[in-house]
Amino acid sequence: MTRVALVPGVLALLPEYRSLQDPVASLRAACLDAVAWLGPSPRVVADAQGSRIAAALVGAAGLDTPPPSGSGYSTSGRVGGRVASASERIETTEEGVLVVGNGSARRTEASPGPFDPRAVPFDDALGAALRGPDPAVLRSLDQQLAEELWAATGSVTELAGLLEGAGLVDVDYDDAPYGVQYWVMRWQG
């Protein structure tokens, strides 16, 4: 059995970028709940920057902190040893996988990247494939287009493999408050 959670690679989630008024409070809450649901020592699928965010979320959720991953999209090692408290624990035979990625940052005129009319349709299609889940569609995602649209989808290919035979547990967050598409989703397989 595998539990998989997707969170966005939002730098504002990092403690070094903390504000007095959290600009991503509801997103953070959804992320922390999802990470806690994974259980201790989740395996992380992310690039280097995403791995820092994963580590921060795992630490903030009261779980083990995975080490920062190396360069490129790869599966970081699992941390053994100490097990901290989690709001919900999983059986030791289950694996927890935390995937970091998000949709386009060119959705609107207020987005970080310049507006691109292809962004919202791209996110809609990607969101539908994640909800399905539809691993075949995820595997065939146009990574060139994703790059043009400033979407952080480098982890989607590996996520597609994880979601073979898995079912959606819940969509905990689906919004683009700053012109960047964020999802927090959970699957179990």
Binding site: L11, Y17, S19, P23
Partner: peptide
């Protein structure tokens, strides 16, 4: 900062 999101979203 009170509320920082520019470049961090």
């Amino acid at each position: 900062p009170l509320r920082a999101i520019r470049g961090l979203a």
